[in-house]
Simulated assay, not measured.
Amino acid sequence: MASNPPGECCTKGSLHEGTPKGKNQTIFGLDTYQVGQEHGNDRIIVILTDIMGHNNINGKLIADELSNYKYQVLIPDIILNDPIKGDLSEWLSKHSAEVTAPIVDPFLSSIKKDLKPKFFGAIGYCFGAKYLVQNLTKDGPLDAGAIAHPSFVSIEEVKAIAKPIIISAAEIDPIFTVELRHQTEAELIKLGARFQINLYSGVSHSFANRGDVSDPIVKYAKERALVEQISFFSQY
């Protein structure tokens, strides 16, 4: 594995403060938070969420910030309105790859086919990272991807990456461990992939979208991860 299955650390985190400026509507069959549509379809970013789902305010605020850079940003409901509330193992049994990939893949393919963006990127947090990586293959719809503290990604999926990828990693992470991070890095080097890995000290799993921003170390890492993702995407 390039990253372990989600654990209890994936269920924890802080809510951020702000007022989302986008709105929810049905897009390609999924309830989707949309912001930045005034920029048109030339530059689109999709956020594939963690187990908290598409209506978590943190993700919406991240989408709003991305839209300030003239991206249209979409957060589809890839967990069918079922954010984690109780037992993690029970939740995961209802949201296996066999269930989730057929939700994600047609959504991304429809954007590529019907909206025809000149640049099509995606950001995957924890649970969502696996499905982003699966769409970074040679024939996948994405032009580039960003993942933060990924879970459930297999080394076979890493080996199939053929598009640029940026990875934001936490120093303290039982899911994307030091060993698995190094294994992922070694494989990307072997592939000759275009990649970037940023390791942030003093932070834990979920820092990039649900970190406690009252902690200045976490706040820096969270904000810097987004800046690096924007900079990475701007090349393409």
Rank of each mutant, 00 (worst) to 15 (best):
L30V: 14
A129N: 00
E17I: 14
A63L: 00
I147S: 01
S204P: 00
C9Q: 12
I111D: 02
P83L: 03
I161W: 08
F107T: 04
S151G: 07
N135T: 10
K190V: 07
I111L: 02
T177S: 14
C9V: 15
G211C: 03
Q37W: 04
Y71N: 01
V158G: 05
H182R: 11
N68D: 14
E98K: 08
M1P: 11
P164D: 05
F119V: 14
F119D: 08
P164T: 12
L108E: 03
V213P: 02
G211H: 06
K21L: 15
F176N: 04
E228T: 07
R181K: 12
F28Y: 12
E185T: 12
A97Q: 08
I189E: 10
T49F: 07
A129G: 02
Q235H: 13
T32Y: 08
E8F: 15
H16G: 03
V203D: 05
D143Y: 02
P106W: 09
K130V: 04
Q72V: 09
T19Q: 12
S151V: 13
A146K: 01
I197S: 01
Q229T: 15
S154H: 02
P216G: 00
I79C: 04
L92E: 00
K12Y: 05
P76Y: 07
A162D: 05
P141G: 09
T19P: 04
C10K: 07
K219H: 11
F232S: 02
Y236Q: 03
L136A: 01
L66F: 15
N209L: 13
D87T: 11
S234K: 09
S96G: 07
E185W: 13
S96T: 15
E65D: 14
Q34C: 15
I103F: 01
D50H: 03
Q196M: 12
K21H: 03
F127V: 09
P216Q: 02
P83R: 03
D87E: 05
I84E: 00
I62Y: 06
Q196D: 11
Q183V: 08
E98L: 06
R181G: 00
Y236K: 04
I123D: 01
Y236T: 08
E17M: 14
S151L: 11
K116F: 01
L80K: 13
L115M: 12
G86V: 09
H182N: 13
V227E: 15
G22I: 14
F127Y: 12
Y131K: 11
